[in-house]
Design a protein around this nucleic acid. Structure first.
Lengths: 233, 233
DNA sequence: TCAGCCGTAGTGGTCCGACCACTCTGGTGG
DNA sequence: CCACCAGAGTGGTCGGACCACTACGGCTGA
């Protein structure tokens, strides 16, 4: 059951490509269960160890999901599954790269907020308000951060593009924001953040995309500029 | 040398987190060489097999680089290294998700092109023109696609944000575009594409960001709309 | 003296076989 | 009829062996 192995790269790398190809060609559907590690290794003519490394690699990429004692399954291949690794980028980026990342976020977040202003429903708006109020009702940085994240997540979801929402989720991942905020909040940015969030909320209520875009861009831009000054010091 | 293993998740998963943490905390610098697989496994109190899976995982994420016979090294952790996995998302996305991905690309590409219009140098512009001419001088779809990719890559580079350029690179990866173009080009879209590219080029020459943004958005939007109609059929 | 070759130690890559931890299922006993 | 449970099957871990490749240093020959 082997077809003239081209012998390019390592055995494990080949296995990764093969499985990816199987999914790309539709031979493996989302949610479907794969053969066992032992069978897969035999089919591709390699050891179980090498096959396990390939499976582990595809697991961290969000393509496969291994359930102990049950089997290996193809994920739903949705944006959330595949873009989870985006958080790693945010976690490991430093210096100028952090600013670039924030610039990307500013572009996407402003557009997402504009889209949300046009499309958001009453229910979604209520959810956004819930986090806005909760954020203003406490002084615990941890809690504020959590509601801040949820605030933007709800808006991104209301924009109607799951892929964009997933990318923004990665760009706002817990550790990334915690790292930046650690210094940012010490400069009395809480009050400003609240005003900016209020402005975004107003634009959403008014269903005003342009106002929403401007408010969101300014919001992220504030942090971006602050980070930029930090680097030059 | 172990600190009260919390025993959460699999052994391999723990190893991945530990190594990621070492890099995040700066204990491992970009380009630095890690201890051998055998030593690492011993330090974290696990078998070499498990450690290898962890290393393989971080390798596909673009965080580590293994050189056969030499050792394991931390990558430069630049945008290109870490965002290579973005291509996998594009390769495995289908249906509505493909449209969402194209929408993200439209947003980023239009902004990148606008930035490029403001910042592009004469040398960079010459490079862009080179690919524009080469694209118009041939009828080989393969070659056209290659120069098309390079055309946009040069523009993204001129925008001055490597992270954005890396993301766009992933969103335009070879297989992704080949897949979409297969059907797109059959509808006589070549001529339209050339006109759109010419419009983008004009805006760059004129250093007109708004015109560049509009031209790029229209360019990607054309493909996006076509894909949208394909899905409803 | 010095350039180039080559042996070798050390590294990642692969394979094997065993056992553990967990899940799922089908039969059994209540 | 249901609850339980034992067993088969699965992924997870381990240890060791060997292969493929790199890098370095000593050796050889000019």
């Amino acid at each position: 059951m082997d077809e003239s192995a081209p012998q390019k790269g390592t055995v494990t790398q080949r296995a990764i490509e093969r499985i990816k190809a199987m999914i790309g060609e539709g031979r493996l559907e989302p949610g479907q269960r794969l053969p066992t590690e032992r069978d897969l290794a035999a089919q591709l003519g390699m050891s179980r160890s090498s096959m396990r490394e390939a499976i582990r690699a595809l697991t961290v990429l969000g393509v496969l999901e291994a359930r102990h004692g049950s089997g290996i399954y193809v994920t739903q291949l949705e944006a959330g599954d595949l873009l989870e690794t985006f958080g790693v980028v945010a976690d490991l980026s430093r210096g100028p790269q952090l600013v670039e990342l924030l610039e990307v976020r500013r572009i996407l977040e402003s557009t997402a907020t504009a889209l949300a202003a046009a499309r958001i429903t009453a229910d979604q708006l209520a959810e956004v308000e819930k986090h806005l109020l909760a954020m203003n009702a406490t002084d615990d940085p941890e809690e504020i951060l959590a509601h801040d994240l949820a605030f933007h997540r709800e808006i991104a979801a209301a924009a109607g593009n799951e892929t964009m929402a997933a990318i923004l989720e990665g760009l706002s991942s817990r550790t990334f924001r915690a790292r930046v905020w650690r210094g940012y909040e010490e400069e009395g940015a809480f009050e400003r953040t609240r005003r900016e969030h209020a402005a975004i909320h107003r634009a959403l209520v008014a269903h005003d995309p342009e106002a929403a875009r401007a408010a969101a861009a300014a919001h992220v831009g504030e942090v971006e500029q602050w980070l930029r000054t930090q680097l030059t010091q």
